[in-house]
Amino acid sequence: MLDTNLKHIETDTEFNRVLSENENVMICCGRMGPMCLPVYDVMENFESKYPNVAFRDMAFDEPVSHVIRELPETQSFMGLPFTVYFKNGKVVKATSSIQNKAQVAEILSDKFGA
C-alpha cells in the first residue's frame, strides 16, 4: 500500500468497482519515488477541486497492478508512474513518468470536461 492520502486500489475487485461506479477515473500506479510523489501530490490537491473525478493510486509492486501494466496503452512505458485516465470504464489517456499540475489539469479538462 502506498503512503499517500489518496484512496488506494488494492484488488481487482476494487478496480472493477471503481470503474463501474464512476464515470471519470484517474489512477496513478507507482512507487514512493521522486517521479511518482509529485503526481500523487497533484491528485491530492485536485480531489476537492474535481468532485466529478475519482482519484485513486495503486502500488506498482502489488499484484493488482497487472490491470494497469497489461493495458495496451502502457506497453511502451519505461518510466514510473503509469497514470491512466478512464471514462465510462475505457482508457482515454495514459502518461508515463512525472507530470505537473498544469499537465494533469489539461488532461482532466480535455478528457473529462472537468
Binding site: 519515488g33 521522486p34 517521479m35 511502451s76 512505458f77 519505461m78 518510466g79 502518461t95 508515463s96 513518468s97 512525472i98
Partner: peptide, 8 residues
C-alpha cells in the same frame, strides 16, 4: 521522457 529518458 518516460519512453527512454529518465532522471531517476
Amino acid at each position: 521522457k518516460g519512453h527512454g529518458i529518465s532522471y531517476c
